[in-house]
Amino acid sequence: MNPRKAMTIAFFAALLGIGYVSMNAAPVLSGEGYSHHGETRWQTDYADAVETAAAEDEPVVIYFWTTWCTYCEDYNQNHYSDPAVRSELDDFTKVAVNLDSDAEDATRLQQRYNVNYPPQHVIVTPDGEVLTRIPGYAPTEDFLTYLETAEERYQSGETADDGSVTTATAGPTSTPGSAAASTTEAAQ
């Protein structure tokens, strides 16, 4: 057999192999209205989630993320796989919004809560009033404090003043990772 032809055939075999294996080995993020982050499962439909939250009388935590955000990966590893965080999150209805999504629902939430870089968490009442927000990355301890603050506020019926930008007045200091490459394509 002609060497170059043989190599070329091997090339296509490798190509198809890589393509097939990688496509099937990719971790499933979402399907059937859910997406997975770390060991937690988040709803993707906001309207459904609000119904759940209202029925259970619990606040909603909205997680804005993207596939390429390195701090989201940190959240997956440090927070959503941490038993303490997971049990705290059980008191919330969880909704994950992919910032790269063009779905109407996602765009509306982004605009409503003025979110333009990942990762961000906005904790709201079932009516959509902001309880607190966690811009960027917050270490596990701080993250828990934020959740507790939100829970307390929800119980006492108060909300953050307006919910425009970085409120979270009672929350501890976070270190927001400005991993905001969301707009790099602008310069591409």
């Binding site: 990719a26 499933v28 997406s35 990966e73 992919n98």
Partner: peptide, 20 residues
Amino acid sequence: WGLSFPVLRSAMTGLEVSVE
């Protein structure tokens, strides 16, 4: 492929997969 297959797979099966 990394750039394209999540789109293909999501179009075919409706599952969103992540490329890390």
